[in-house]
Design a protein around this nucleic acid. Structure first.
Lengths: 211, 211
DNA sequence: CGTATGATGTGTACAGTGTCCACAATGGCA
DNA sequence: TGCCATTGTGGACACTGTACACATCATACG
């Protein structure tokens, strides 16, 4: 039992097939977006029969949903990467930097991992489940929560009038999300890196000014 | 030969099979989004063999692209519906109304025809082809052109500084497009009509103020 | 007028997909 | 030890996109 090739499963039971399937699905999504998350190919990569997946997911759509949630967690991770780089300053400057970090991290992820970005938003969602733990990154926060945190700091720093705070997430998120979509699939596709950076900064400026 | 049932094709040649396929594809897209534009089902509806489609489209993706362009034309139509309802006023008010009409028409279409809206943006595009005639509506203008026209009026009316005019389309479009996506598939799904209307107005306000 | 020819549609075939069903192996619990 | 729920397998089916060879027609040209 101890000298089996590491690629082969020594036990009949897989151990954590569900996790392995999600991981394989993420690889497929990374390379080809949501449509590439093909059930049979996913199981093939894990070295298991196609039907094995049905012990862990109701159908292909359920597998895709799990992959999508994982991808949203990666979005959160990428945003947090930007957040930790923010220097210590006064509250107002920090709040603005935070909002900027959320936007730039979001767009950076869209450009670096277009397949995962598309996958993250390919499955219908709603407000009630936007903060489900399955969508959180390593830091335990979802992208939606990160946007909310930035806006809370803006409010606390006096940069956002209290009467405009409710649902301000909608505005900030819409703008940045739209830019991300248009950049990877839409008419803004093919823009050079600097142009996208510039557009990102302008969108964030607009949000800050327009909130 | 003269008493054939009207549902049957009397001639071997179809007449305009390409157009018929696009129309059938639009019906499928309306009901089920881009994934529902299935080549075999499309040809079945037109009453033709699956391979007939290959005389007019290189593959399924090419058919989907044609359907997507058509859907973009419908977006333009919906926007123009809002535009014609604008009353005559002074230039500044008209410019603002125009920008607002573009935004509300865009979001209205997303809500009224989510399947077509998703289909319209499911095929990779780029700036060079954003104004292709195949994407124009009955008025001969593409959605992108309509956004540009609104911004041109804003500029002419002195509501948009000249140095900010270049690429302002990116900002306006990103915000509204993002809202549309989030409303039909994203976390904002399931919001009530009035809430969406309100969010739409706020997003447009933000764009106007932030441009 | 008749016929060659290019354009358009058909039939058959194949690999790949999601999913259903019946069955098999396993490991933990009585 | 023996039972049995859990987890995985194998085979089957309907469906998909698409390649290849063939049939049919519309017309341009002799």
């Amino acid at each position: 039992m101890s000298a089996l090739p590491s690629t082969a499963r020594s036990t009949y039971r897989h151990g954590d097939l569900r996790e392995a399937l999600v991981a394989a699905g993420v690889d497929l999504a990374r390379a080809g977006g949501p449509d590439a998350v093909v059930l049979r190919e996913t199981t093939r990569r894990v070295g298991v029969s196609p039907n094995a997946a049905y012990r862990h997911f109701a159908d292909r759509q359920a597998l895709l949903k799990a992959v999508s949630d994982r991808a949203l967690g990666f979005v959160a991770d990428r945003i947090e990467d930007e957040v930790v780089a923010i220097p210590m300053t006064d509250a107002a400057t920090h709040a603005r930097s935070l909002l900027r970090a959320v936007g730039t991290g979001y767009i950076a992820f869209a450009r670096e991992e277009p397949g995962l970005f598309r996958t993250a938003f390919s499955v219908p969602d709603n407000l009630a489940s936007a903060d489900a733990p399955s969508k959180a990154g390593a830091g335990g926060r979802t992208p939606y929560q990160l946007v909310g945190m930035a806006l809370d700091e803006m409010l606390a720093a006096g940069l956002l009038p209290a009467e405009r705070r409710p649902n301000a997430e909608f505005l900030a998120w819409s703008s940045v999300h739209g830019l991300g979509m248009l950049v990877i699939d839409g008419p803004l596709r093919g823009l050079t890196g600097p142009m996208i950076d510039h557009a990102t900064q302008r969108v964030i400026d607009m949000v800050e000014r327009g909130l």
